[in-house]
Amino acid sequence: MTYRMTFRGAAVPAEPGQSVGAALVAAGILDWRTTRGSGRPRGLFCGIGVCFDCLISVDGVPGQRACLVPAGDGMHLGDDARHETVGHGEDGGHAGDAGGPR
């Protein structure tokens, strides 16, 4: 069977076992968020969970790595009511290396 997901209201098919990011790329969708600073489009880059370029909201949960999240039937991807674009003011809460070098 083929899963059906939606991205900004449009249908995106996915093969079971594919990642959300792979399914989007296979559907010709190469970017799904914009950068905080200059609003540039971003999608997959490292493809293996390291670069965090491919952040997307999945079923309303923002900040998911599209390259890692397995596709699921009926998933809602991308914008939702609360989160215009992941990374747009939403990523202030991560506790990465905000403290700078030790």
Partner: peptide, 18 residues
Amino acid sequence: PGVMAAGGAQALLKGHRT
């Protein structure tokens, strides 16, 4: 968009048939 790490392009193929 469309620029990827070489390993990422390969991972899409090997891991996701994409």
